[in-house]
Write a protein that binds this DNA or RNA. Structure first.
Lengths: 260, 260
DNA sequence: GACAAGGTTCCGAAATTTGGAACTACCTTG
DNA sequence: CAAGGTAGTTCCAAATTTCGGAACCTTGTC
């Protein structure tokens, strides 16, 4: 196991739930002996990947990660193009928009477009959530091959919110539905009372994939309003697929909120 | 030279001026042989610290840096307290506010508070600039010991904009002035026509230091307006020093826009 | 088809990492 | 104040990685 692997293992211990860690936390989370942990933490601190609070002695991601994180946006073309379109839809509908990428069986929020309707934004950029429990997450999964999906879902199926697929079979059923209908929808999953609709967009050029979703309060929206969101998303999906050369664009006449 | 050191050396090649790099760029910038560069880039990519554009094959900071960079913000107390005060000053004066930290002889922008006056923001968060050429950068340097300053300035004094100190002696003269008068001011340095005033804030608890500045167009402001900015900053400095237990707070009656 | 640029793989020598144990520093408690 | 605990560092020989030159692929180009 290389020094870099170890370093990454430590870095991956940090999350929004645990934005800072003590020496003991890191030791427990990585299961490494004291001496190794000590040496590694010091290296990471000295090189700027971690910072240590002088008072509490706890560690947190360092200045270097802040700088590099700002540069990550260079990811431009696909994401900023999608963001531009999403902004318009959010302005028209008043709802909140999300753009995320898939990483394993989780998704990471890249951009948020706050809507005008009051709805607390609970997923700030950088937030990591199981892709199985979101509309755009499932839309992205639906575009993978079945074997790829199987490889991504952990051996022990994760515990998900009540309305999310509770096991692999239910998951595949929902993905199949997305593939058939082209619509990915979620309601009362990650957050009670919040629903969303989403789709996956894949660049024909680079093959990279992002998930785009619009989320709203289930109570505060009518069925008609949700149908309107569906139309807006379908139009956005169609336009973006054309612009980015998404392989799904081939039969551009069909309504494609989701996938195949 | 450890694997981690090499990895960091590569990561530090990225900057806002060069947000993505090719294999050859990295090789040239690090001066490492092909084989080492190849191995290292692959490791960094596999672990998520870098991403590779599938089309151009160029590398850029990866998803992991994005996530960690977001967490770095949790670094709150001192910075968010300063940001809150800065927001009020910027709202009152209409100018743009900056918060930065010192790293070697450079500073990194952490937060920006856009003013209502139209002035293009040229230093987005994450931006790295020589601290010698900004008002708050020099204010931070002024609070270090002379030997510490000497250790930070590179052996060959860097080439700076016309109005910045051109050599070590000039630099020390300006720092001494800051120490005496308590005021740090810059005009027409990094950017033509832009001036700024700043001060350094140090937490009495943790010892960490940040630089706070307000910047404005030199042409579009009167001397009276700039004097007003000075008063605003002095008031903010005084209040923040009290709140954070800054060692400089000892004689809180004096006007302290800059440092001792 | 030859060439160059860009990049990967191989391999033995050399340097680094590992982790147990001993050690230091600093609290807390009886 | 001594004893015990917690937190973390340093040491060292063994084991693992890394290093970099050279040979080897792959792709686009003239």
């Amino acid at each position: 196991m290389s020094a870099l692997t170890n370093a990454i293992e430590i870095l991956r211990c940090f999350s929004s739930a645990r934005p800072d860690l003590s020496f003991a936390d890191v030791m427990a989370l990585t299961g490494k002996p004291k001496s190794s942990t000590s040496r590694l933490l010091r290296s990471l601190r000295d090189c700027g990947l971690l910072e240590q609070d002088p008072h509490t002695r706890r560690y947190r991601p360092g200045l270097l990660t802040f700088e590099l994180g700002r540069l990550h946006r260079a990811h431009d073309d696909l994401i900023s193009m999608a963001e531009r379109e999403l902004r318009e839809v959010c302005a028209r509908t008043g709802h909140t928009g999300y753009i995320a990428v898939l990483d394993g069986f989780e998704q990471v929020v890249l951009r948020i477009v706050p809507g005008s309707n009051p709805l607390r934004v609970v997923n700030p950029p950088g937030q990591r959530t199981p892709a199985l429990a979101t509309s755009n997450g499932r839309a992205m999964l639906a575009r993978l091959s079945d074997e790829d999906i199987r490889a991504r879902v952990p051996a022990t199926y994760p515990k998900l919110p009540r309305n999310s697929p509770q096991n692999f079979k239910q998951l595949m059923a929902r993905l199949d539905e997305i593939r058939r209908t082209g619509v990915s929808e979620a309601a009362d999953e990650s957050i009670e009372g919040v629903g969303s609709q989403g789709f996956a967009l894949k660049s024909g050029e680079t093959g990279e994939m992002i998930g785009i979703a619009v989320s709203y309060s289930v109570q505060a929206t009518t069925a008609a309003e949700r149908a309107n969101v569906r139309r807006e998303l379908a139009a956005m999906a169609s336009k973006l697929r054309r612009l980015t050369g998404d392989p799904l664009d081939q039969d551009a006449t069909r309504i494609q909120t989701g996938t195949r």
